[in-house]
Structure formats: C-alpha cells, structure tokens
Write a protein that binds this DNA or RNA. Sequence first.
DNA 1: GTTGTTGGGGTGCAAGTACC
DNA 2: GGTACTTGCACCCCAACAAC
Length: 317
Amino acid sequence: MDTIDHFNLRSFDLNLLIAFDVMMQELNVTKSAEKLRIGQSAMSHNLATLRMLLDDELFYRVGQTMRPTARALALAGSIRAVLVQAQHALSAGSRFDPATEKRAFRIGLTDEMEMFLLPALISRIHAIAPGVGLLSRAVSAETVGIMMNDREIDIAIGSKDFPEGRCHSEVLFESEVVCCFNPDLFAKVQVIDRETYLGARHALLSQTSQVEGCIGMMLRTMGIGIDVALTTSDFMPVLSAARHAPLIATVPARLANEYAPLFGLSICPMPISLPLPPVRMGWPVWSDKDAGSAWLRDMLRDVVKGMAQTNRSIAAQ
DNA sequence: GTTGTTGGGGTGCAAGTACC
DNA sequence: GGTACTTGCACCCCAACAAC
C-alpha cells in the first residue's frame, strides 16, 4: 500500500491543485479567478506558486489565451482524479461509481443541442459508464424552470437564463450563427453581404410561438426588419426549405458545418453582428449533493471541451 | 489563562508588460 | 488603445510563541 508523506504534503497547499484544475478547464487566468471567486491577481499568484513548486511554466501565453505545457497536460489527469476522488469521499452518503452504476439521467435539451451534444455525450458515457442511460426531454425557455422544479429533468442546456435561486448555471460555450443558402437559387451570389441578407426571404428557428424566431427578434430590437417566410422549432426543415427555395437559413454554426453540406447548401458568415447569448448548462439546487449529477456535469464539460479542441485542430489544418 | 508580539500565508491594488 | 497576465508591495488574518 502507498504511504503518504504528510510532512511534505503539509507544505503544499492543496487549494493550488484546485486552481490548477480550473485553469486547465478555462485556460484563462481571469475566468479561472472568477470561477474560484478570488481576484485575478490572486489567481496569478497561485499560478506563480505552482510554477515554483512544480518547476515548470505550466501555462504559457499565446495571444489572448493560455496554453498548457507538456508537464501541465501530463499532470492534469492525475490531479483531476485526485480532486474527483476527494469530492466523492467528502460527499457523504452520495457515491457514484460510473463503472457499476445503473441509472438514467434526464436531460432537457433543445432540438439543436440534441443534435449537437447527444451523440458525443452518449458515446463517451457508453465507454466509461455502460450502465448509465440518458433520457432526452425537449425543453423551451418557458418550460425549463417548471421541469426542473418538478424534478422532471436533472440538467438542462440552452441559451436562456435559468430561474435564479432555484438552480445554478454556467456557460458551456459561446453561440455563433451562419447563413446557409442554395447557390443554384441565388444567382451571382458568392457571399451573403448585409444588403443581400436584408433583401432576401428567410427561414429561421424558433423555440417560442413567435413567428420571427429569436434571430428575427434580435434584429427587430436593433431596428432591422427581415422578411421571414418560415420558422420551425426543428432546424432540419429550415435547411430543407433553403435547399428548395431561394431562402437564407440562419442557423447555429455548429450544426450548419455538419448538416448544410448534406443539403447542398453554401455556408457564409452572418453579415450582421448579433448579441447572441452563450449556451448555458443549468441544474436544480436540489441536485447539488447528488454525486451522479455532478459526474454528468463533468461529462458535459469534457464533451464540449473535446469538441472545441477538435474544431481548433480542424481550423488549424 | 490571558494578552501582546511576531511571522507566514493569502489577497488586492496598482503599475508594468505582452499581445492583438 | 484594449485586453489579459505578471509582479511588487501593502494589508489583513491567524497561528505560534513568549511574557505576565
């Protein structure tokens, strides 16, 4: 059995491991500090202490982001494992062993998130937690709070704010939309510029009863009106409509990149900058002490992080 | 046992630096 | 010029220790 050098460990503030772990997730000193609820300079001091103790730069700056060194990458897995184990040990009465657990989680997702996240999430869960299942429930901004309150879902993902006080939330990733169009139906158009966008008819997504959808609403609040020919809650009909009619489909970039080519559609950046809310993950306060729920949140963070890394490598090629 | 002193650790402020 | 990170310095808190 391994022995523990208590004397040496005593000289190492274990909070530094938490700082390291958060830094590995955020790769940003300011955001890590916010997450730990300390000042940005305190976070920087923590990093400096870690660098001195571990005799490695750990994170180095590249432009506006921080990148982990090989040593940091090598340490990340072990440190995360130590922290997860500590959390499990401390959450009395609430243990969760993914390898043996038989349980179904209920996740509230929009149609977009279902297509985007679910395949990668279930693939990851299947690999490490064969007894865990997922039940996807459709949610909207109007229903998410009620469903959490009624314990119909363990976790929800969407772009709307979650009811304050009754649940916690955190940003999973930033939103981005692009324009998709059938080049055969838009003669002489290579790129959708502002003038073309405003002069065209549109197919949009809407999670509410509003015909104009959230994109149309955002544009209206900016004093811009567009001609909306179609809105649906499902993005596949939106893309299909753009394939068969001279319509511009404004859809999330993540889905456009994957599915627009299947419909023979061209993809262009959105010519008008929109204040899109980030995609957030929310969970009810009653699930705070549920180790399984915490595990699922970690899975989602990892899946999103993995997708971001994949996108970065594709962009770099 | 109580009180005062000292030193270490953690944090924030502010200035400096690097990068876009 | 704006944003993000680093660094030096000062402050505060708290534990350890000494003096009474």
